[in-house]
Design a protein around this nucleic acid. Structure first.
Lengths: 249, 249
DNA sequence: AATAATAAGTAATAATACTTAGTTTTTAAA
DNA sequence: TTTAAAAACTAAGTATTATTACTTATTATT
């Protein structure tokens, strides 16, 4: 895996660009505000990027140059902590926004982002977005709601890390991943390494492996290589039922 | 401590109401957008509430009726978890907003809020705020930025809970509280119970007590009843320096 | 002022999680 | 295809944290 800088990726405009008007991704916040934004040159100013599996397209600490909207594919968003240890903040699916935190705290990204599979991203520059946000209250309001939703999710995760034991967090995470990405033939649509599960859950690889091993023995999950399938979703839900919440996708 | 409902508190309009135009609180987001909002009837539609120390003014799960802006005082915002155990999401100071997460997920508050000292709050109804946000892009944009900042803070806390040991988290928290609320005569301006420190840090009372005891022995902090003072701020910072970050206030 | 309740503190024990050290399997590179 | 590297797996040992059981001090109530 080579580390491409955001800048070099930025210039990699491909002939597969699709304008926002004809894009089929209905969950995208830009798409949903297209009527409001239609008088703006804004929607013609995006760049569409093809990102290979494993490719990093946002470097932590790099200057914020824009927001990425996931047109297709899956992405993990992470922060690097002590000793280079990675913490996965969230997984992003189609229609979701990456790099949005840079709007708040200044000029650099506080996160990194890597594609988990081949992905197509639409990138809008920060300056352009700021301008159009300041012109379009409806769009601004929708962006605000997006952030409010992200904040709720983040705080649910804070609670999970504070009050759940590791096994509970693992159960919670499997339910979340399953709900967010769905399953095919009984296996969750996003194969992740044990390390990635650990980085998301805030524990070690070995702990994940140990808990998966136990869950497999207890017939709650099944594994085929990196693919994980949930066999008994109710039992998994029961693991966390005392906590009375699920992470929203 | 009696639990007043938000509704009854809501009606408790006092003669000490001050209009936004003459309010001296310069950090308030409404105040900062006053020029933009001046044509709106909006700023005359707030309610000013006097909240006693220990009084709960937001009940988790209650319908969202508005946002609270802290004119004066200090507040803790919490979520209730397993077995009624409380998790403190954050502390809020003057000029800060409470209840803002209700904008994202629907009709009820996902948090509770209690005044840590006598506090004065300005409350704007959700409907009114939505209307004015949809009319004023500058204000909407500023609200969006506020949420983006809150999201960054929340994610820093996620990272802290994932990767720091309890002692490190305690050091981090003391630095944060000290920075946010300041000190007088060598003691942090917000006396908290050991339970509250624990609820914020995501550990048990006894663990807090144990770590405070150790930090006192090592001359890093001093305690007078519930008041805590930092004696050696550099040593405290050194406890978390390997993690390369501070929680922003 | 006296009493009751709660919070702070301490020590010991139990439970949980992390780390280390290996082996086996899978994936990537040559 | 072979080899090397990385990931997955397992077990054992160590460290951290939570829980339990008290005592003491402080705060709230009567």
């Amino acid at each position: 895996m080579t580390l491409n800088t955001s800048r070099s990726t930025f210039q990699n405009k491909t002939p597969s660009s699709v304008s926002c008007e004809v894009c089929m991704n209905k969950t995208c916040l830009i798409k949903r505000n297209l009527q409001t934004l239609s008088n703006s040159k804004f929607v013609n100013q995006k760049r569409t990027l093809q990102i290979k599996k494993g490719q990093q397209f946002i470097i932590e600490g790099a200057p914020v140059n824009g927001l990425y909207f996931v047109k297709q594919g899956k992405v993990k968003v992470f922060r690097t902590g002590i000793n280079g240890k990675e913490h996965i903040v969230r997984f992003a699916n189609e229609g979701e926004i990456i790099g949005h935190r840079g709007f708040g705290t200044g000029d650099s990204y506080s996160i990194g982002a890597i594609a988990l599979e081949h992905s197509v991203l639409c990138c809008f520059s920060k300056q352009m977005l700021q301008d159009v946000l300041l012109e379009n209250p409806r769009f601004s309001y929708d962006m605000m709601l997006f952030y409010a939703n992200e904040l709720n999710k983040s705080e649910a995760k804070v609670k999970s890390l504070s009050q759940m034991m590791v096994r509970e967090r693992v159960a919670d995470m499997l339910l979340y991943i399953n709900r967010k990405f769905g399953s095919t033939n009984g296996f969750i649509n996003l194969p992740l390494s044990r390390k990635e599960y650990a980085d998301y859950t805030g524990t070690s690889d070995e702990q994940i492996i140990r808990i998966f091993s136990a869950l497999k023995k207890e017939k709650l999950i099944i594994a085929r290589g990196k693919k994980i399938g949930i066999l008994n979703i109710d039992a998994l839900k029961k693991e966390i039922s005392a906590h009375n919440f699920f992470l929203d996708s």
